[in-house]
Amino acid sequence: MNRKSRNKRLDKGFSILGIASIAFGLIVLLVLIIDVFLDGSARLSWSFFTSFPSRKPELAGILSAWVGTVWIMAITALIALPLGIGAGIYLEEYAGKNRLTDFIEINIANLAGVPSVIYGLLGLGLFVRYFNLDRSILAGGLTLALLILPVIILSTREALRAVPFSIREASYASGATRWQTVRYQVIPAAFGSIMTGVILAMSRAVGETAPLITIGALTYIAFLPQGLSDPFTVLPIQIFNWVSRPQKGFFANAAAGIIVLLGLTLIMNAAAILLRHHYQKKIRW
């Protein structure tokens, strides 16, 4: 009897511990958000978005940073989306089970775990030096594209796998070719999940700092890039730059920049979650 009640108490105790450990992560997230708001919200103003960085913290803004981020994101998406979704389609819909595809699969799993700073070194050696692209937007976009490629491939495969086999069967049985089946049946059915994965991958790219620093993206830019071959900076690099200044005044700028960056990331994540939810609801097989 005694043992039984002890067991019950332990069970209850663990339940509380479980809630506490989940809550811990979420509370930290909350504290973090409150902290940056307290530190940075005073600096948030229209001019913060329309000013170049400056030696004086009160005058500095994120104009070149957010414009750079937009450029880099566009290039990254343009390169990584077709290649990543294409590779995912090949591996899920075309490839047979053989040594080569097994090798490609292991390889992608590994690439997904390679530290982002290594992609920076790849970009530096390959795009900046070997292809002579210098520290340009193109070099940055290519580097980040390679970085998120495995993420997009993996999520695309997962999305395709969720499409019921019977749809493919129906399409093939009516004499459709493989591509027709993929293009007109499988992709539309998996579209929502594929996009969810793409948005999450892009939200990761938005926050990446290390690879772009490694390829030599500048930390101080007082002009706007005009084309693919221009130097650039991005929002997280600008934040990093402000955090590493000794003057306290720049910390508020960093916090304000973080509010913008975090807002962007959270919106993208929320969009992805909502999209997933929406499609899960809409399609019932």
């Binding site: 019921p164 019977s166 129906a170 539309p188």
Partner: peptide, 9 residues
């Protein structure tokens, strides 16, 4: 087929 498999269209 055994189970009706219309396309989700």
């Amino acid at each position: 087929f055994q189970k009706p498999n219309p396309f989700p269209k």
